[in-house]
Each structure stands twice: as structure tokens, then as C-alpha cells.
Computed example of a mutant assay.
Amino acid sequence: MNDIFDVIVIGAGQSGLACGYYLRKTKLNFLLLDANTTCGGAWANNWDKLQLFSAASHSSLPGWQMPTKKNEYPTKKEVISYLCQYENRYSLPIKRTVNIKNVNYRDQLFELEANNGEIYKAKTIIAATGTQSSPYIPKIKGKEIFKGQQLHSSSYKNPNIYKDKSVLVVGEGNSAAQILAQVSKVTSVFWAVKNKPAFLPANVDGKDLFDQATAKYKAKKEGKEYNSKNYNLNSIVMVPNVKEAYERNVYKEYNTIAGFSENHVIWQDGTSTKIDVVIWATGFNFTTNYLRNLVSVNPNGKIETIGTSAKQQSGLWLVGFGQWTGYASATLIGVGRSARKTIKEIQDFLNS
């Protein structure tokens, strides 16, 4: 392409759309590039019955609140619908099926190399590619010789195909809890954790966690001590299906893995259980490897930043990657704050 953009946003999921919202308020020439074939970002890859753990009123991008539906906690389908409507509502310039493989910096311009051979050029870039395409599975003794099925939670869709199979879910977060709730309705399921799982009180949801993150953010900016209700941001939220499973005692038994044999999981106490399927709900690394020619990228994909600005490369910002690029920035409601600040910084950078 011959065009030189003021800003190119890599990724048109929730973080890219939030950046696009604020970019449209400027006079900058910008473009969003997305690897997916359809709207909705990484949400299309989540399991069928995924529920947010915040109500619609606290799960919205800047400018337009997610429409309230019959479900207090929006479903995957409702989130995708909202994101698709959002990009149309603000007429954001998005080009899809463009997977950026590498980025170079030459003659004060970023050159973005796409999978189809095209080169895109920009004065500044925003990486908004999140984590979904970089699933993390820990190294555990014997995992390679296990003969059963193994999949990451990013590949899990629905529980029905696991009926009458012995399933092991690994992880102590919200994803693991929701998958356990579903799979336990169709077959026997076992739970493996690294640390003792913690459940939030039934009246605490994503809104409370976001409010806590916001208060912590403000206190840090003001150089003050932060006194909170001490909700652990990594604790499991009691969305309806988790609450129902909790009442069925689905979560009462858990253990820690020592290793695997060909057909069994081996527990820390030396006992073992025959397993047919392992679902790894063990989180993600950051999808940033395409920036390796510009900055140092550590093994989990993290890059040194000051706020959202890359320390090692002027003109590069990273939005929506979680705490290291802004408190609650990996959430729908939290990313707007990071996006607004980033676009203001880009305007100042280009004006200078």
C-alpha cells in the first residue's frame, strides 16, 4: 500500500475499537487491521456459554453502553453483537483478514508486514492484539506422553462432546470455574489447581472489582496508600452457572498435579486418576511477538512500557494487555481509560 497513516491500530477487538472511538474524534488518518474474518475480535473463539461477570452497564466501551438484555450477565453472543454494532455505529475503518507478522522501523516510519505480503506504513502504531491467540499451557512432567485428548480453554466450545468421558480441568480462575460448571452436568470431572481457589461473595461481581482497580489506580497516581475491601482480583465470581455448580458441591474437591502417565493424572499425594480429556484453563501469554524487531519481548510476551508507551521504541503504544498497560485495561469497561490517554499522547507526539 502507498498510503502513510498517522496511526495504525493492530487488532480490532475491544481494545482496538476503544482506540478507534477516540481516534475518530481527532483529525488523524488512521486504520484498524484485524486478523479475524468477522467482527467481535477474540470473543468468537470463546466457548459457547461463556458469561461475563459484570452486568451490561459495567461491560461497555466508551461512548455507548451495551444494551441491557434479559441476562444480567451478558453472554458471548450478546458481547459479539455489541462489538459488531459498535464498530458500525462509529463507522470505524477496519480491514480484516490482515495478520501482521512483523514490524520494522525505517526512515521514521513503521512498516507492517502482513501475511499476504502487503506492507502498511504509519507514523505511529498501537498494538491491541491482547492474549487470545497465545494460549499458555504449563510444563508438567509426563504431559507429552499422556495419550488422552488435551486442549486449552481457548479451544473449548461446549460440554456435550465430553459426555461419559473422564475430564480434568486445570486452573483456578473464572474460566476453569465456568467450564467445570458446564462439564459437570454431563460427565465426571476433576479439578486441578496450583493454588487454593478463592470464591468472591455472591453479591460481588465485576463492577466491584473494577471499582477496586480504579481506586487503586487513583491512589497510586496521587502517591497515596490504598485501603480496599481486599477483594482478590483473581478470585472466582459467582455468576449464575458458577453459583449453581457451587451449590451442587462441584468445587468441593480439588488437587495439585505432580505429573501424568499415559492414561492417568498423578496427584501430589502419589495417587492417580484415569483421565480421558485434559482442559487447560491456564491463561494466556501476550500476543506481541510481531514486535520483536522493534523492542525486547520477554518469554510471556511482555514489553517494557511507561503507561502504554513502549520504552524502547518511540511511536509505539500497547493498549489492553492488562495491568502493565493500565489497571483493568483487559476489560471492556477498563480499556477506555487507557485508550483515551493513549490517543492524547499520540496527538502530542505527532504535533511535536
Rank of each mutant, 00 (worst) to 15 (best):
A12I: 01
L17Y: 04
L17G: 01
G20V: 03
Y21T: 06
Y22V: 05
R24G: 07
K25L: 08
T26L: 00
T26F: 00
K27T: 09
F30C: 01
L31N: 01
A35I: 13
N45D: 13
W47A: 00
L50F: 02
A55G: 15
S59F: 04
P62M: 05
K69F: 11
K69A: 12
L83W: 03
L83C: 05
R89D: 07
L92E: 02
P93G: 00
V98D: 00
N99M: 05
I100C: 01
N104M: 10
L112F: 01
A114P: 02
G117F: 07
G117R: 08
I119V: 10
A122Q: 04
T124V: 07
I125G: 05
I125V: 07
T129R: 02
G130H: 01
G130D: 02
T131E: 03
I137K: 09
K143T: 11
E144Q: 11
I145W: 06
K147R: 10
S154T: 05
S155K: 12
S155P: 02
N158S: 15
P159V: 11
N160A: 13
Y162Q: 05
K165H: 07
V169F: 03
N174D: 01
Q178C: 00
Q182Y: 10
V183P: 09
V186T: 11
T187G: 08
W191H: 14
A192F: 04
N195P: 02
N195R: 11
P197T: 03
D208P: 08
D208Q: 15
D208R: 13
A213S: 14
T214N: 12
A215Q: 15
A215L: 15
K221G: 04
K224F: 11
K224P: 10
N230F: 11
N232H: 12
S235E: 05
I236L: 00
M238S: 06
V239F: 05
P240N: 04
K243N: 14
V250S: 06
Y251A: 05
K252A: 15
Y254W: 10
N255W: 13
T256Y: 00
A258H: 11
H264F: 05
W267M: 03
T273A: 11
V278N: 08
V278E: 06
T282P: 01
G283V: 01
N285T: 09
N289L: 12
N289Q: 15
N293E: 15
V295F: 12
S296M: 14
V297Y: 12
P299N: 11
P299F: 07
G301P: 09
G301F: 08
K302I: 14
I303L: 08
I303T: 09
I306F: 15
K311I: 15
S314A: 12
L316F: 06
V319R: 03
G320M: 03
A330F: 06
L332G: 07
G334A: 06
R337K: 14
K341L: 14
K341V: 13
Q347I: 08
N351F: 12
